[in-house]
């Protein structure tokens, strides 16, 4: 594989891996704290992307403000899902599959609300309107100002979230809830407040991920769903419980989808159309061979159940 191609693919890995990490951490967090594999997470991402798109079309071009809007909408979508759907269901102690099904239903509703919105105002496949500037160019490798926004922001947010979880009182309460919900309640942790905060953070980060994603490619109502399988693969690599494992998993998935896929394409002329099979293979392999993922490997590094 020529070095230029390799460099490009590695840059892609970094870029996409950071976004995957941002989304997958949300999946891991909801699974640990809320005991819920939330498939509506995909639509929090899309909702955030649309919030970013609309505010940028309205003339707000500051990336920070755009991301703030995406955060707010993502967080609101998540909190409303919790208050209107998940919380009442949990109080009735419904089965695990009912919760999964409910998350599907929320995703479905959000996705097609976005479709309606996009359809009414012709907002399909638009890019968030931040002007593009090329910062660096060599061969096929192009680094734009958006790259300079996306990667550091994702990394910073991942870092802040890790810090929050490990160092703040809220993080400690979240970990307590992840570890033993009934005990957490007994020792006086305000469970409902912690859950609300968790949903806000999870949805907000998903929204920001959507905004960053939309800056680099384009916004459409299916964008979140298109990424959800890769994102779940990353979270499963993290054992659905480990923070650092999830981050590592996100880069592993992005690396497989970009660098390895390109390598297979270049060396063995494997069709790039097989790329969607990669996260599937990762999920199956992890579940069969090592269902705990990287979590046991990185026990000290931020496992939520430690």
């Amino acid at each position: 594989m020529p070095p230029a191609l390799l460099t490009t693919s590695l840059v892609n890995t970094l870029q996409i891996g950071s976004l995957y990490a941002l989304m997958a951490l949300g999946i891991t967090l909801t699974f640990s704290v809320m005991k819920l594999p939330n498939f509506a997470h995909a639509e929090f991402v899309s909702a955030g992307a649309y919030a970013a798109l609309i505010i940028s079309l309205a003339g707000v071009l500051n990336p920070l403000l755009i991301m703030a809007a995406a955060f707010v909408i993502g967080a609101l979508a998540a909190l409303l899902s919790h208050l209107l759907v998940f919380k009442p269901l949990e109080q009735r102690q419904v089965s695990f599959y009912t919760l999964i099904l409910a998350s599907f239903a929320i995703g479905l509703i959000l996705r097609y609300l976005l479709f309606l919105l996009a359809d009414s105002f012709n907002l399909f496949d638009l890019r968030i309107a931040i002007p593009l500037r090329i910062l660096f160019r060599q061969d096929s490798l192009i680094l734009s100002n958006l790259f300079a926004w996306a990667v550091p922001t994702s990394l910073l947010l991942v870092f802040l979230l890790t810090l929050l979880l490990n160092r703040s009182p809220l993080g400690r309460e979240m970990r307590a809830l992840a570890n033993n919900p009934s005990l957490a309640r007994v020792i006086g942790i305000p469970v409902e407040r912690v859950k609300n905060a968790t949903w806000l953070i999870v949805g907000g980060l998903a929204g920001v991920a959507g905004a960053l994603w939309g800056m680099q490619t384009a916004v459409n109502p299916l964008m979140g769903w298109a990424a959800i399988i890769s994102v779940f693969a990353a979270a499963i690599l993290g054992g659905l419980s480990s923070f650092s494992g999830t981050i590592l998993g996100a880069y592993v998935v992005a690396f497989s989808e970009n660098t390895i896929m390109l390598f297979l394409n270049y060396s063995f002329s494997l069709d790039l159309a097989y790329k969607p099979a990669i996260p599937f293979i990762i999920i199956i392999a992890v579940l069969l061979i090592r269902p705990q993922g990287f979590s046991a490997l990185l026990r000290r590094g931020g496992d939520l159940k430690r």
């Binding site: 759907v85 269901l89 409910a102 996705r111 309606l116 009414s120």
Partner: peptide
């Protein structure tokens, strides 16, 4: 009417699902 009704259909089905799960599981 400019509304794409197929989208509405999915939204309605999603709402039916949620209402059933909550009020008549």
């Amino acid at each position: 009417s400019p509304i794409e009704f197929n989208y509405v259909r999915y939204i309605v089905y999603g709402i039916i699902l949620l209402l059933m799960l909550r009020y008549r599981p």
